[in-house]
Design a protein around this nucleic acid. Structure first.
Lengths: 417, 417
DNA sequence: TAAACTTTGTAAAGATTATTAACAAATTTA
DNA sequence: TAAATTTGTTAATAATCTTTACAAAGTTTA
């Protein structure tokens, strides 16, 4: 006979209160899991160290550390390096995290090329691979095959096997549902539309895969080992052909209800009337300070002057124009000011909402130091809503580093299951 | 002799990976804490229930539940209600969370009045108190005394003592440092400036106190038992004399690096040039669609018409104007459209950054259903950046409910220490 | 009405994990 | 060479949870 209860809300439920860990019924065996996980984390940070070190770091007793390390060794997560140097007593047995137990892969699908890296479990890059797309190769199916090829090549280069790749993160230039692994829309990829990339890749490669927006990955990368390291709340603004932002809050990416947080290419530009937002056509902000917008402004200013080599100059790309400004070019400086002003206004509005500690400027155009300087100077006029402005320190590697970071986190969760 | 280690990073350190609870070295005694906490949470949700129910809800074994409940009873957190009805066997002993073990207080410091509520540990309001400020009473010191008076009165009304008040949350109309409990600036309170309100109140009342921004509290309230219940990512926009927003992300408030997240009164308004931001003077957005801005627009439109009772009409307040629009008043409808358009533009820009699931409109002016409808209609033109728009369901009670919610969370954490 | 069945709750025994205390091992220092 | 220091393990003890057994108190059924 059944009991009379109807609703079974188990421990999971969770209110808005975080309080203690308490999420599941805790049994004694959970202690071991928790402590092993904590010790592994300490071990990864303090690369080669002794058990005695771990005792000091963790606050656990020596026998507990001993048994936990034995457990981790049985999972092949810890390597014994033999004796270290004595400091006045019995020499310690040095151990370290077994970084070659597995590998993770990072992929960046760009508009024109595919880039990949392979890293060990310390995040050390052990192989790279890149290729230009031919027109045919930009279909989702072809991209999957290419990625699989790249994986095999990289694994060979690093003298390992694809089977040892524990996780892969792929960045795509479009709105992406990370939960389902579907690229919802990517105008720069021949209009990819609702492409179930994760499923396709997992079927092709057999590797657990995460699909993310490329700008979001760049934000993660800058947080991991770039300009935003140690900063838990920041915005990463990517200016290139497209314009977008990665929103990093409380140490994690913020995706939004429809996975479109950070789509600031459509943000309003001071002086321009708002229009209805459509996925297919680029937004005001992108048209104004995306690479093409900046080049258009350059040509507009150029047309009003008489220049001997106007036709040559008109062909310059955005970064080249900014370079001219560094050398004191008057017209180029005007272009920088134009972009910085629009960008600063945009940052102010975002800062009024989120009040970030730092804004990182990245992307082909955005990471130019001249733009960074000018923007920060404009922001300084305000009494508030003036975050620090830093340029990306990882440059074009940011996405790939971010991919590695996410894959490391994902694989870590699975190492001790 | 010291060891050679220099940096002691204990378990706390935490990467960006949440993984398992693992934050501290776990000992067997932690299990009891975790399980007791979880059981208490279940008990609060399933008000009167038996231990057998808790066994089913929690997944723990019967002896464990028995001993944990005994532990909670020893802390006076659980009441025994005697036998319940049998369902074909031995009748259950019904128990419930002891909601009267303590109380929490919520306070709203407004521009003209002070409002307070007292609630039991179920969040049930057991007493209320409010008073209009005299001009003299708006100094920080006087407000503290008033609050203490209100507390004593409420405790008497509820036949309890101030000593049983476990926590208090105070909302102030200004930028507030929640960590330090300092009101950084509150223009509407005779320019309160860096007022250490928490310290003052804790000294005055002896009660652990949290100080928050009033709009943030309203957002928490709407999440707890209002229009945003069950929504983990939303914006609460308060339109009244002032204009501000509460940013609620991943189930928690977002404060920003300088505690000024959500200060959208200074956000840009389409068609108006940006000026430098100053704390002292109200921002563009507030001037446009704050109560005063709406009334100014109303008078501007009125002046262009010939109305018999123009002087009467010119005195209307914003909500009254909106009421006229409901009855089909042409001019009033224009005012609603004016405000809705500016508000919608603002929401679009915020949504491009955060992509919230819901936007709640609140405050004296904002909660008007006519404004809500018009705004959502304008947003519907977009293909994206169109969150649901709902009006506040708690109205003027939102702040106080939010205060109760935060104090409950704070006291909960301390009940089992 | 009595026996059988249900449901609730506790008590005792067994399992897991942690800690403390004692001790063994290996090296430096006096 | 003996004492001190540092590292690491083994054995005993403590805390918690689970399973098993059982007592208590009702309802259902023959």
């Amino acid at each position: 006979m059944m009991t009379r209860q109807t609703t079974f809300m188990r421990f999971q439920s969770s209110t808005s209160v975080p309080s203690l860990p308490g999420a599941q019924p805790s049994r004694p065996s959970h202690l071991r899991q928790v402590n092993a996980r904590g010790l592994l984390r300490l071990l990864r940070e303090h690369s080669p160290c002794s058990k005695a070190d771990l005792v000091r770091f963790s606050g656990l007793s020596a026998p507990t550390v001993s048994s936990a390390v034995a457990y981790l060794e049985s999972l092949n997560l810890v390597e014994n390096l033999g004796d270290g140097e004595s400091s006045g007593g019995r020499p310690p047995e040095m151990i370290r995290f077994h970084a070659n137990r597995g590998y993770v892969a990072g992929v960046d699908i760009g508009g024109t090329r595919l880039r990949m890296v392979l890293a060990d479990l310390n995040g050390q890059i052990v192989a790279q691979w890149a290729t230009q797309f031919t027109e045919r190769q930009r279909t989702p199916k072809a991209v999957c095959t290419l990625i699989h090829d790249g994986l095999k090549t990289m694994c060979q280069d690093a003298s390992t096997s694809v089977k040892k790749v524990l996780d892969m993160t792929v960045g795509a230039p479009g709105v992406t549902n990370v939960d389902s692994g579907v690229v919802l829309s990517a105008p720069n990829l021949r209009d990819w539309n609702k492409v179930p990339l994760r499923t396709m890749l997992e079927r092709e490669t057999g590797i657990a895969t995460t699909v993310e927006n490329d700008t979001n990955l760049a934000a993660v990368g800058e947080h991991w080992r770039g300009s935003a390291s140690g900063v838990e709340d920041f915005l990463f603004i990517a200016l290139g052909t497209g314009v977008g932002a990665g929103i990093f809050l409380r140490g994690r990416l913020h995706h939004g209800a429809n996975w479109s947080a950070g789509e600031i290419g459509y943000a309003s530009v001071s002086g321009q009337a708002r229009q209805a937002l459509e996925v297919r056509s680029p937004g005001q902000m992108e048209r104004s300070i995306g690479g093409l917008g900046i080049e258009a402004e350059w040509r507009r200013l150029l047309a009003r002057e008489r220049c001997p080599n106007a036709t040559e100059l008109a062909k310059l790309r955005a970064t080249e124009i900014f370079d001219l400004a560094v050398d004191g070019g008057r017209l180029a400086l005007q272009v920088v000011q134009y972009a910085a002003q629009i960008l600063a206004d945009c940052i102010v509005d975002m800062s009024l909402t989120l009040d970030p500690e730092v804004v990182i400027l990245g992307g082909g155009v955005g990471s130019h130091p001249e733009l960074c300087r000018s923007t920060e100077k404009l922001l300084a006029r305000n009494e508030f809503a003036k975050p620090q402005v830093r340029s990306s320190s990882l440059g074009t590697q940011a996405q790939l580093q971010g991919a590695i970071s996410l894959s490391l986190a994902a694989s870590e969760a699975r190492l001790l299951d």
